[in-house]
């Protein structure tokens, strides 16, 4: 299909990009890898007047090891994230989830920042960012600010980003020793989005679960933190029965959507099963 007409600017620096956005006003959009925005344009579901292309900016693309966190530049491609030694060593949950996104072609173009800024509740990385309490570094002509993941995802496809703001990168906290990770994605074909996904990080101590972080993909308008499950898991033995019991309330507080692939009651059921599986896998326990 053919998108409606728009203007296109490709600034040479982040500063220029911020200024271009500020000038263009409300109907401008940032274009990064284009893997979500271009389909929306082509289906004529979005009508921006100006696209500010930051996809080729060298600046926010780096992935850096910075003491207690890893900084992932917004325009790093998903493929770069999957292959990054730092990400795999220090914040492996990000790589585990990014690996499940779409296919190699999409991962070579789609960016880490774009996947988060797009805030699709069916996207795989928002739940990871939420589970890990990432910090979002945001720039605009007005200056720079940082927003925690819990405040970033606001509604369906809506984030804390103002129209003139650019996501520069994300600080992913290192959780330290003793943590295990798993991303459980349930989807019908290899390329398809998650019907439900579960991001889990579990710290084991003395054969039990000392702490857990769990977030759900596609169980509501935004990614959701399964706080009840996290609380129930604290201190339970890392075995199948105990974990299953703690995960029985995984769908509490969710409002899962209905679509062609699943109705809400089925999604709730999946959330419970998949959370158990994700937690057991993260705890390296036998299912």
């Amino acid at each position: 299909m053919i998108p409606p007409a728009f203007d296109y600017v490709r600034p040479a620096s982040l500063g220029q990009a911020c200024r271009a956005l500020a000038e263009a006003g409300e109907d401008a959009k940032v274009l990064s890898g284009g893997q979500s925005l271009i389909p929306l344009l082509r289906l004529r579901l979005s009508y921006p007047t100006v696209l500010v292309d930051i996809g080729r900016l060298p600046e926010p693309r780096a992935i850096r090891d910075e003491d207690d966190h890893v900084f992932i530049g917004a325009t790093a491609t998903l493929d770069e994230v999957v292959r990054s030694a730092v990400v795999n060593a220090e914040v492996p949950l990000v790589a585990l989830a990014a690996r499940t996104v779409a296919d190699p072609a999409v991962r070579h173009r789609g960016t880490f920042g774009g996947s988060l800024a797009h805030a699709d509740p069916a996207g795989d990385l928002p739940a990871v960012a939420l589970a890990l309490d990432c910090e979002f570094v945001i720039a605009s002509a007005r200056g720079e600010r940082t927003v925690p993941a819990a405040g970033f995802f606001q509604d369906y496809l809506e984030t804390a980003l103002a129209p003139d703001e650019i996501l520069v990168g994300v600080k992913v906290p290192k959780l330290g020793p003793g943590w295990g990770f798993h991303y459980e994605k349930f989807h019908r074909t290899a390329q398809a989005w998650a019907i439900v996904g579960v991001a889990a990080a579990v710290r084991r101590a003395d054969g039990g679960v000392a702490a857990a972080r769990v977030a759900l993909t596609n169980m509501g308008a935004t990614p959701l933190r399964a706080t009840a499950v996290e609380a129930a898991l604290r201190g339970v033995p890392a075995d199948a029965d105990a974990v299953a019991g703690a995960c029985a309330g995984a769908d509490a507080g969710t409002s899962p959507p209905a679509d062609l692939h699943a109705r809400p009651d089925y999604r709730r059921h999946l959330a419970r099963v998949l959370t158990r599986r994700a937690v057991l896998a993260a705890a390296r326990a036998r299912p």
């Binding site: 289906l43 296919d103 019908r188 074909t189 290899a190 398809a192 062609l260």
Partner: peptide, 12 residues
């Protein structure tokens, strides 16, 4: 779209 009409690929 092919996001809704699922056609298997080699990976499936």
């Amino acid at each position: 779209t092919l996001a809704d009409y699922l056609v298997p690929s080699a990976a499936d």
